[in-house]
């Protein structure tokens, strides 16, 4: 419990850090929300007027302090391009991103376990080569390529799944596979590694010399050992998974927070960009706290100081 409180305490500096980094980056990038909004033919006086109206003509330091103060009060501000509170927009779009990310995680784990076990049980064998070949393929295909590829095969040619958009489970499959493949590959490799280490251990040598039950023993011990690594890995990969979700959303017209963010960057909608990035960061931190807690459950030897 104390640990949890401590972790929650670290959330504040991380949130401020992310907010500051985002603020600095988006303001350093050339371009202007007002020009992006009014277009190329806008009169200079109108641009200046709107800048004033939105408070963009104030000193950058003052804007930053205002932004942080708002954040402290839990106010993310109002989107410039939507004319709506940022918090509401995010609340609307976040479930779709969460759904996609969880589905990607599920695909990753479901694919990784059989692959990892198959190759770890008999390293160097043909099954190992095949599974690891698949893993390498999974890592080497970027989302922007895998997404359309899956669409061509499973939607255009086979007609199994709808192409784009969010709907039932069928809509979820292709984006989830796009997102989960790289994760599956990474976890599978980690599992294989753990199993190989256990396999070479003295304990297993003894078990093997006794002959029967070696496979079961390997799986039980190997997987138990691997669980902590897998949980840690999921935490480490959470960032990659969220970034992947962003691109996957773009490809599959998935109405999540990633598309909201890309659109907001294009429009230089500062409050919305900041809100989206903070949501991503917050999700990441929460996932990592969760994996830390899981760590304790999976491996009771780990004490949470």
């Amino acid at each position: 419990m104390r640990y949890l409180l401590r972790r929650l305490g670290t959330l504040v500096p991380v949130a401020i850090g992310v907010a500051t980094l985002t603020f600095a980056m988006i303001h350093l990038v050339p371009g202007d929300p007002v020009v992006a909004m009014l277009g190329e033919t806008a009169a200079p006086a109108d641009v200046a007027g709107l800048r004033h109206q939105l408070g963009l003509d104030r000193p950058i330091g003052e804007q930053y302090v205002d932004f942080l103060a708002g954040l402290m009060r839990g106010n993310l501000g109002e989107s410039i391009s939507y004319h709506r509170p940022v918090a509401g927009l995010i609340a609307e779009r976040f479930p779709a991103t969460l759904e996609l990310t969880i589905a990607g995680l599920v695909v990753g784990v479901l694919v990784a376990f059989p692959l990892g076990i198959v190759s770890g049980a008999n390293p160097g064998g043909p099954a190992d080569l095949g599974a690891m070949g698949f893993a390498i393929l999974g890592i080497s295909i970027p989302h922007i390529y895998l997404g359309p590829l899956l669409m061509i095969v499973f939607s255009l040619d086979l007609r199994w799944f709808p192409l784009t958009g969010r709907g039932g489970l069928a809509h979820l499959v292709l984006p989830a596979v796009t997102l989960g493949t790289a994760l599956a590959a990474v976890i599978a490799r980690m599992l294989r590694q753990s199993l190989v280490v256990v396999r070479e251990s003295d304990y297993m040598r003894t078990a093997r010399s006794k002959g029967r039950g070696a496979m079961a023993a390997l799986l039980i011990h190997g997987l138990r050992n691997a669980m902590t690594s897998v949980v840690t890995l999921v935490g480490l990969q959470a960032g990659a998974l969220l970034t992947g979700a962003l691109i996957t959303e773009m490809i599959f017209s998935w109405p999540g927070i990633g598309r909201l963010l890309i659109g907001a960057i294009g429009a230089r909608d500062y409050p919305l960009v900041e809100g989206c990035v903070l949501t991503f960061a917050f999700t990441y931190v929460v996932v990592n706290m969760a994996t830390d807690l899981l760590y304790g459950i999976v491996d009771p030897r780990v004490r949470l100081e």
Binding site: P148, M151, I152, L156, R159, L163, T164, M250, I251, S253
Partner: peptide
């Protein structure tokens, strides 16, 4: 639909 291949696929389907 920003992706050119996805637009083509939507037409084809």
């Amino acid at each position: 639909v920003p992706d050119p291949t996805v637009r083509a696929l939507e037409l084809a389907e």
